[in-house]
């Protein structure tokens, strides 16, 4: 490889390089480790987001599942309503609840993992 003619390159460095180097451990995890106010805020926000998500699932389950006995109690016609030869309560409790519960679990896991990924990125990157 041929080098063009001209003055040699001079590397310009600061004498304070080492002093200015950033710490290796991300500050986010250090705040948590040292239990500073900021670290507590990080943890609090993580726990609150996960709790809100959990309560949303429980709330949905309470309304949907808890509503079923109430529906049967308040609207007696639903107890014997015929769905393709099978009474409605048997369709709901025997079959329909299971896929709904499974889908709810899938949605929950996706969201819980998203919250954790955001938290990991946030405290790891500071």
């Amino acid at each position: 490889m041929s080098t063009p003619e001209g003055p040699r390159r001079v590397r310009v460095t600061s004498p304070r390089t080492s002093a200015a180097r950033r710490p290796i451990t991300p500050t986010g995890t250090r705040e948590i480790d040292e239990q500073t106010r900021l670290g507590e805020v990080y943890m609090h926000s993580l726990i609150q987001s996960q709790l809100r998500l959990a309560l949303a699932v429980i709330g949905g389950a309470t309304v949907l599942l808890g509503g079923i006995p109430l529906l049967f109690a308040l609207v007696p016609a639903t107890r014997t309503l015929d769905v393709l030869g099978v009474p409605l309560p048997w369709v709901i409790l025997g079959v329909a609840v299971y896929p709904v519960v499974y889908v709810a679990a899938r949605v929950y896991v996706r969201n819980a993992e998203r919250i954790e990924a955001e938290f990991t990125e946030f405290v790891g990157r500071q």
Binding site: I32, D33, M43, L46, I47, E116, F119, T120, V123, G124
Partner: peptide, 12 residues
């Protein structure tokens, strides 16, 4: 609380 809730990927 840190132990229970922090994902394993975070080094704390």
């Amino acid at each position: 609380m840190v132990r229970l809730h922090t994902p394993e990927a975070v080094d704390v």
